[in-house]
């Protein structure tokens, strides 16, 4: 069973490797949005420090949402998804595999780029570390929740907008917890509570989202 998981992750990573432009799109978007803010707002250090967590988190959230369309659409179009529904492992497990691969190419790079971008906002080192930690816990949740929306809107016209509308309300708690963690760190307050809540959210999403997405896929392909 875990062999199938490994095959799915390996396959999706290989596909992303050979379709690098798609992956780069979302990343470039993230870099552009996060870099334009300091230019647009002006060089006032205090103001920049105040808006930094929000701007970086919102940019990361939008970039991750931008990448959602890639998750199932191509496999749906060429029939590969049908074969996944008929695989020898439970569909939920395959969704987990796809989500892991998707996070590795869309979430992980965001997390690694964030501290570099945060330098433009003059964030203190403590806050930088918390920013990375909060993204490490938050972006997998975004991917998992997003997989439900992506699965539900398969084959629907204008699915991008619809996916956003579906998943945004569920993204909001992650966004609030993530930004307030970084805010707290910048203000010298303990961030444990925020990070623990983000962890709880991730565990919850990890336990339920793949099965919800699997059910949605079955409906979309019926």
């Amino acid at each position: 069973m875990f062999k199938v998981l490994r095959v799915v992750i390996g396959r999706d990573l290989l596909l992303s490797m050979r379709r690098r432009a798609d992956v780069a799109n979302a990343l470039l978007f993230f870099i552009l949005v996060a870099s334009l803010f300091p230019l647009g707002v002006g060089p006032e250090p205090n103001l920049l420090r105040t808006i930094a967590p929000g701007v970086i988190w919102v940019a990361a959230l939008l970039a991750s949402m931008l990448a959602l369309g890639r998750m199932f659409a191509a496999d749906y179009a060429d029939g590969a998804l049908e074969q996944m529904l008929l695989a020898s492992a439970p569909l939920g497990l395959i969704v987990i595999g796809k989500a892991v691969a998707h996070w590795l190419v869309s979430g992980l790079p965001l997390m690694l780029l964030a501290p570099v971008l945060a330098l433009q906002f003059d964030l203190p080192i403590d806050a930088l570390l918390v920013l990375v930690a909060s993204l490490a816990l938050g972006t997998p949740s975004l991917t998992l929740i997003g997989s439900i929306g992506a699965a539900l809107t398969l084959g629907v016209r204008g699915s991008g907008v619809l996916t956003s509308l579906l998943v945004l309300p569920l993204y909001v708690p992650v966004l609030i917890l993530g930004t307030s963690a970084v805010d707290a760190a910048a203000g010298g307050v303990t961030v444990q509570a925020h990070l623990l809540l983000l962890t709880a959210f991730l565990i919850f999403a990890g336990a339920f989202a793949p099965w919800a997405a699997a059910a949605a896929l079955r409906i979309s392909l019926d």
Binding site: L14, A74, D78, G79, E82, Q83, L86, S88
Partner: peptide, 18 residues
């Protein structure tokens, strides 16, 4: 059941990049 089944549908499920 899936383990004992091979289904080849209309769409060949062949990935362009592989």
């Amino acid at each position: 059941y899936h383990r004992q089944l091979v289904y080849i549908g209309h769409a060949p499920a062949v990935k362009d990049e592989l």
